[in-house]
């Protein structure tokens, strides 16, 4: 299958891209790496009149140190994110999750911001971004605004990015020295997770002092497991030590039932994977 015909524009600056969006917004789709959009277009699940390709905008790509945060340009590829030394040092959870996105070929083209803006609840990057308290920098005709992770994911494939706006970069507060693990449960290789858990943990002398936990595919958006985080403070950094806290992973979740598993099955998985993810992140 090939996509339905569309007009194509590849702006070379954010300003040009915003201009194209204001002209064609209602009939346009924004493309970063295209690894999620092109399958949708090929299957004719969507047939926009215009495709606005952000791949030629150099300023939207790259990773930089900005004091208390790491800033990841929206069109930085997963491959570049997972191999980046700054990300690894200050936001290890992002490195771990980016490594698990799809397969090598997709990671060479797919982008960090594109995946987050696509907001697939089974996507691997939403839960880590949420857990780390990421901030989303969104540019539109009215200027630049910053949206907190808690407010970014609105619903299934829906974010706080407006029709005439673009996600340009994501700020990840530094979590230097925190352990991290992304535990993903899949039926076959390179697929979306049935459930996954993103955990990053600050542990001192075998005791967890602080933990941040995000859940993938346990609702229509990525979810923060606040109950688990609270219960983990002071827990021993081992599977047994975190077992009780992990039981709280299902609080406030509303997982889907589908061919891969029932909601009940997903709730069971969430507890088991939370236990494993937190223990691994804590080095226990």
């Amino acid at each position: 299958m090939i996509p339905a015909p569309f007009e194509y524009v590849a702006p070379t600056s954010v300003e040009e891209a915003l201009q194209a969006l204001s002209e064609h917004g209602d009939d346009a789709k924004v493309m970063a790496g295209g690894q999620s959009l092109l399958p949708v277009l090929r299957m004719r699940l969507n047939a926009p009149e215009w495709v606005i390709d952000l791949g030629r905008i150099d300023s939207m790509r790259g990773i930089r140190d900005d004091g208390d945060a790491i800033v990841i340009g929206a069109t930085t590829t997963h491959h570049d994110v997972l191999n980046d030394a700054l990300v690894k040092e200050h936001a290890l959870l992002i490195t771990k999750a980016a490594t698990e996105v799809a397969d090598a070929q997709i990671r060479h083209r797919g982008t960090f911001g594109g995946a987050l803006a696509h907001a697939d609840p089974a996507g691997d990057l939403g839960a880590p971004a949420l857990a780390l308290g990421a901030e989303f920098v969104i540019v539109g005709p009215g200027g630049t605004r910053t949206v907190a992770a808690d407010d970014f994911f609105v619903d299934l494939f829906e974010t706080a990015i407006g029709e005439d706006e673009l996600l340009t970069e994501v700020r990840i507060p530094k979590h230097t020295g925190w352990g991290a693990h992304y535990e993903k449960f899949v039926r076959v290789a390179h697929q979306w997770p049935i459930v996954a858990v993103a955990a990053t943990v600050k542990a001192d002398g075998g005791t967890i002092s602080e933990a941040r936990v995000g859940l993938t595919n346990m609702g229509s958006t990525p979810l923060r497991a606040g109950g688990v985080e609270e219960a983990l403070a002071g827990a021993a950094a081992s599977e047994d030590g975190v077992r009780e806290a992990a039981e709280k992973a299902v609080d406030g979740t509303n997982p889907p039932s589908d061919l891969n598993g029932s909601a009940e099955y997903r709730k069971h998985l969430a507890k088991v994977l939370t236990r494993r993810a937190v223990a691994a992140a804590a080095g226990g």
Binding site: Y8, G34, P39, R42, D53, Q105, H108, R109
Partner: peptide, 27 residues
């Protein structure tokens, strides 16, 4: 597969492997 799953269409673009059924020629 024509669905970007199977990898049979893998080529190198700018030195890195990609699934060429999941890249537009204009890209």
């Amino acid at each position: 597969c024509d669905t970007s799953n199977c990898g049979a269409c893998t080529v190198h673009l700018n030195g890195r492997s990609v699934k060429s059924c999941n890249v537009l020629a204009v890209q």
